[in-house]
Amino acid sequence: MRRHYPQHRVIRPMGHQGNHGRLAASALFLAGLGLLLFNLVASIPFGHAPLHVGRAILERASGETGADNIVTAILLGYRGLDTLGEVTILFTAAAAAGMVLASAGRGQAQGEDAGFIFRTAAWMLFPFLLVVGAYIIIHGHLTPGGGFQGGAILAAAFFTPLLASPASPFNHRVATLVEGFAGLAFIVIGLLGMLGGGQFLTQLFGKGAPGALFSAGSLPVLYLAIGLKVGSELAGLMASVFGGKEKA
């Protein structure tokens, strides 16, 4: 049924096949496109583009959300729905990749164990990465950083040991649980905002003192949910790509 095709066919880059006419044509096309794009972009004055919504947000963000980091105020406040969508895309991609890689008939392509030194170092890094990740997540509304960056570090904490020794078990069940409930928490926080006559994602708690850890209403809570979700998703995604063993 399944035909056998020769494996490892070498693909030569285009230019080396003597196809110079084609190469010249694409160079000409790209040059034209570049010129066009450059003219377009040049019509937006650099450093002086219209600051319409941006100015309003710069003036009001601190008062309206209580966050010192205005980018965070936008990500979780003004454009919080974008962030929910972004987490959803990551979730969807992880689900799709998991589905694609999980289907039957896939050989176990596992890497080799990296040896004692790497294994030990990976586990020694583990607590530090956890602490740094957690710190970056919970300070996201005050300083650069936040749920995505911190989540990526959390994922690295779990994933570095797996890189060092691919045979070590990875608990997909826990990752699925954290991932699902963190995503649910984001939406539930949003829906709770609608209880008092507000809209989806309306702030829940007081804004607090500027610069304090417990400030900016529900933004830090949202970031915590994002951090956990991103962390579990990235770790799960990497584990399914690299074939980490399922731990029941």
């Binding site: 454009r79 974008d82 895309i89 799709a96």
Partner: peptide, 26 residues
């Protein structure tokens, strides 16, 4: 201050790009 909105948009776009890339590799 610089306009904060494009910075927020880029953060979102980077994560979107990462997700698509992971699926593509799978």
């Amino acid at each position: 201050m610089v306009d904060p909105i494009p910075q927020a948009l880029v953060l979102t776009a980077i994560v979107i790009g990462f997700g698509v890339l992971a699926l593509a590799l799978a």
